[in-house]
């Protein structure tokens, strides 16, 4: 560790930028974080944290199968992500088992299938990078896929952002005025699957759910306006990614874990010090001085 070399903040930031893989990692992780952060404001308001966890774990067999067949891994992940949600809906409707049980049951089943497949297929799949992410080792084809999917999700969310907000807020009203709620439901699920696919490159399957809920939760503590919430969510996600990658570079830590930890710390900071909704209610505190 060249700890003495970051005596200045300047070199702390610029030194890693001399490495091509670091520039790529910083850029791609920021992009992924922005996409997940954008979606995260909808997911936290809709109460889909568990659903996010389910979808992100369920993509595992899809990734493995796609690698084995030489297909784009996003395709396999997407099919299994949406498939898991369809299966959850089906089992919930046809049985008396409660929804959270069904969700837990289905995604662990898919995840286990993925792990078994990895051990059986024995190709050059790097289990570690799927589970924990490898933002520093993203290949060129992964970069193209990530940019394509990210743009797709951002475009979809931008076009339907008002409808999705209404869907999260009051689906009954949406239905009453003739808005296609069924479509919006699956649109949000599709975006969730796609975001999980790009997110897992940064932080891996196990932690990608953090990318999908923590930034939104942080932003929710800081504002009462949805547009601001989206902006804060995206910014906090990007900043966490940058902090996580730098920290992991200088201290030789697991990158995915560092990114998520950075998000968690930002959330805790908001939890304690958010002006209105934080534990210390700073707004009231300072108002008392006036």
């Amino acid at each position: 560790m060249e700890l003495c070399s970051f005596l200045t903040l300047d070199s702390f930031i610029t030194d890693p930028l001399t490495h091509g893989f670091m520039r790529k990692a910083l850029l791609m992780s920021s992009l992924v974080a922005a996409v997940c952060g954008f979606l995260s404001s909808y997911l936290t308001l809709k109460g889909w944290a568990l659903m996010g966890d389910a979808v992100s774990h369920s993509v595992m067999p899809g990734v493995v199968v796609a690698y084995a067949l030489g297909l784009p891994f996003s395709l396999g992940a997407f099919i299994f992500g949406v498939g898991s949600v369809a299966l959850i809906g089906f089992i919930k409707q046809k049985s008396r088992v409660k929804e959270d049980t069904v969700i837990g049951l289905v995604f662990t089943g898919f995840f286990a299938l993925g792990i078994v497949l990895v051990s059986k297929i024995k190709s050059n799949i790097d289990l570690h990078s799927i589970l924990f992410g490898s933002p520093l080792g993203i290949s060129l084809s992964d970069v193209k896929q990530t940019i394509f999917i990210s743009l797709l999700v951002v475009i979809l969310l931008s076009i339907f952002r008002k409808d999705l907000l209404l869907y999260c807020f009051d689906p009954r009203h949406a239905k009453t005025v003739g808005i296609n709620v069924f479509f919006l439901h699956y649109l949000l699920l599709t975006c969730l699957s796609l975001a999980a696919v790009v997110g897992l490159q940064s932080v891996g399957i196990i932690l990608v759910v953090a990318m999908l809920i923590t930034p939104g939760a942080t932003a929710y503590l800081l504002t009462d306006e949805f547009d601001n919430m989206t902006i804060i969510s995206v910014l906090s996600a990007i900043i966490s990614s940058l902090i996580g990658i730098y920290i992991s570079f200088w201290f030789d830590l697991e990158t995915g874990g560092s990114i998520v930890l950075a998000q968690t710390f930002i959330f805790l900071f908001a939890f304690l010090f958010a002006p209105r909704y934080g534990i210390f209610k700073l707004k009231k505190f300072f108002a008392g001085y006036k």
Binding site: F169, D170, H173, V177, I179, D224, E225, F226
Partner: peptide
Amino acid sequence: IDSQFPINVWDVVMMGRYG
């Protein structure tokens, strides 16, 4: 209704026009 939803009066009423 989730009364903690981050949305203001104007935007809620505007949702009446979405259809």
